[in-house]
Amino acid sequence: MSVLTEKINAIIKPENLVYSKSPLLNDDSMHYCPGCSHGVVHRLIAEVIDEMGIQEETIGVSPVGCAVFAYNYIDIDWQEAAHGRAPAVATGIKRVMPEKYVFSYQGDGDLAAIGTAETFHAVNRGENIVMIFINNAIYGMTGGQMAPTTLVGQITSTTPHGRNVDLNGYPLKITELLAQLPGAAFVTRQSVQTPAAVRKTKKAIRKAFEIQAQKKGTAFVEVVSTCSSGWKLSPVASNKWMEENMFPQYPLGDLKDTGRADASLYKVKG
């Protein structure tokens, strides 16, 4: 055995462990493409649930889209919702079990196209749920079609000449719109392309779950993400493309952190 191998083996000991896979992530290989942001966000959710010790009290709602199989990976109870309906399903679960933690996990097509009504009204009611929104500006599962958040000029399989506003309208900044709703408690936009960004996103997800416990209203976490397969770029090039093109349109940071609005502001006079 070389000196180097001996040195490495001396380090790889349980007492020196600083990071290992969350116990809430099971051994199923994730079906996502190499470099997919979903895997990172799944891990962060699993870590937050584990660290808060709420595995037995949390119910996840998975969408239709690439994350449909989220239920295969995180070891909690799950419901798989119809396309776009995750906020309604989460509402149903939370309303009859208000003591539980409920979160929905949706992509841009699910949350911002087919499920726009469910998304808006769940947030507007100030449902005490966490909503995780993966925005990669494309439909991944169906093979790279235009999403509501697809950028102008961005090439997808249904905008092969680039998204044209005359034909397809504008990228939908749904998170900005949701931040306007009085039921929203916490609205933030994060990313997971660097270690620092990952750590910030984890903090945001943790905060979102804590807001749910405090019954302050809806906690909404957008994660600006990549789709290497849909964008036809390598994972590393995807991150660069995201930083250059997505971030100017979808700037990172907290959009709202006030808790839901005081009802008296909206009340009739008599």
Partner: peptide
Amino acid sequence: AVCPDSCITVYRTK
């Protein structure tokens, strides 16, 4: 932190 497949375990000497 950035690994999407949670396949890296990290050790550090104290």
